[in-house]
Simulated scan of single mutants.
Amino acid sequence: MQLQVALDVLDLPSALTLANRVSEFVDILELGTPLVKSAGIAAVTAVKAAHPDKLVFADLKTADAGELEADLAFGAGADLVTVMGVADDDTVRGAVAAGARHGKRVVADMIGVVDGRVERIRQVAELGVAFVEIHAGLDEQARPGYSIDRLLADGRAAGVPFSIAGGVKADTIGSVREAGAVVAVAGGAIYNADDPAAAAAELQKRIVS
């Protein structure tokens, strides 16, 4: 299982600073959607230039014009981009087509899909995405009673390659690995830590131990 850090900051200097601190311990550097909107697609190029040995994930959350938006991100240096799992099938197919031209990969983000999520995960997997991100957003996580267990259960049930985003931290990453995820996405557990590098190192340690 790979470890992905969500660089959920709002400007490129902060993103580069965070990436520099944690890159030793992670496999994938994710430019969060607010960062891409704030700093522009050039931020993808800058992060990839600074860390050419890491996979760079552009979290576009594309809902339309899948081929066009994915092509922009891949052209800027992204190795992976997201398309919304709730998007039209042709939007997903378009993003996948762009990925095929660039030799890069597309991830379907399932944020906002709750009812019928397992069925939709299987559907988008058949459209050619590399894997499906079973994702609870910040707003969902803030609700009383939220648990990562629902994400893990849906991942197990779907039977396709998946990642988990939403509540991945030191005391849950073992369960993410045991559920069979190909990627664990950590955001606040790293960037909100007093020492982000130490937090990333601890997560990485728990993946391999």
Rank of each mutant, 00 (worst) to 15 (best):
31 L>V: 01
15 A>V: 00
17 T>N: 14
58 A>T: 02
52 P>M: 03
27 D>H: 14
82 T>K: 13
66 G>P: 07
36 V>N: 09
54 K>T: 02
71 D>S: 15
38 S>E: 12
46 A>M: 08
63 A>I: 09
42 A>P: 00
19 A>F: 10
18 L>S: 07
11 D>Q: 10
28 I>S: 11
25 F>E: 13
46 A>K: 15
77 G>P: 07
65 A>Y: 07
80 L>A: 08
37 K>T: 00
14 S>N: 10
37 K>A: 13
18 L>H: 08
41 I>D: 08
33 T>G: 05
60 L>N: 09
24 E>N: 12
23 S>R: 02
69 E>F: 07
12 L>R: 12
13 P>G: 07
74 F>G: 02
69 E>P: 01
42 A>Q: 14
79 D>G: 08
65 A>V: 02
39 A>K: 11
65 A>N: 14
58 A>M: 13
71 D>C: 02
10 L>G: 03
30 E>M: 10
51 H>S: 07
70 A>E: 05
33 T>H: 05
76 A>L: 07
25 F>L: 00
37 K>F: 11
42 A>S: 15
35 L>D: 08
30 E>Q: 06
38 S>T: 04
10 L>P: 00
49 A>C: 01
29 L>H: 10
13 P>T: 04
51 H>F: 15
43 A>G: 15
74 F>C: 14
66 G>E: 11
20 N>P: 01
55 L>Q: 15
30 E>R: 06
60 L>H: 12
50 A>Y: 11
15 A>G: 07
28 I>Y: 09
13 P>C: 10
58 A>K: 12
63 A>P: 03
56 V>E: 13
38 S>A: 15
22 V>M: 13
12 L>F: 06
28 I>R: 10
39 A>H: 03
